[in-house]
Design a protein around this nucleic acid. Structure first.
Lengths: 108, 108
DNA sequence: CGTGTAAGGAATTCTGACACG
DNA sequence: CGTGTAAGGAATTCTGACACG
């Protein structure tokens, strides 16, 4: 189905590199996780791993923090965005279902 | 000019994750570097950083090693590939030069 | 030649807490 | 609330070398 998202969403970057990439301190990055703004995966040993998408999101977060927006609000915005995205995807799937129902669909 | 290559070629993955991703031991990964097959960058502290392209290349290398090909030969193949790519790029640039010469080119 | 491994050390990351404001 | 920092510990990575084949 999807394609090159494989890289952008793969969680492979450790916090030190994320810190370099975003200019944020480790402390801030971990704090935003605590506040549910970001969700890294972990290595077997417990080290955090982030994706390029996470890095982009962290930069957006940094901008909003600079604007004086609280993590609470940012979190709400993110949840809303996520809901919009989920709904959109659902809408697409239902439409596809209609199409399949109309034109029929059999395995080859 | 180029576009989304930004992610694929960005060196951000530490050797432990690369090891997970490729199934190769750290020892092997470092050895292939010693043999000039792969060229990671370094963090300030000296840790190696790889790109997704590097990961892909390592998997290709692993395949060839399984086929009993020596690092020496693999290296030669890689250099040839690189030369082909460089030539191709040069060819494109020269062609573009011809086009600009013919149709003229002024800054707006 | 390609790879495992033990060795010693340095860099990286982790958590929980105190501090300030 | 958001962030810095010192603390102690564990996981990660590094290099050079010996071993085997």
């Amino acid at each position: 189905m999807s394609n090159d998202v494989s890289y952008k969403d793969k969680k492979v970057i450790t916090i030190g590199v994320v810190s370099e990439l975003t200019g944020l301190t480790d402390r801030k990055i971990r704090y935003y996780e605590e506040k549910k703004l970001i969700f890294p995966e972990r290595t077997a040993g417990g080290s955090r791993k982030y994706s390029f998408s996470d890095v982009e999101l962290l930069m957006k977060i940094a901008d909003k923090m600079e604007d004086g927006i609280q993590t609470r609000e940012i979190r709400q915005e993110l949840v809303k965005e996520q809901n919009r995205a989920t709904k959109e995807e659902l809408r697409k799937k239902m439409l596809q279902g209609q199409i399949n129902a109309h034109f029929g669909f059999r395995k080859p």
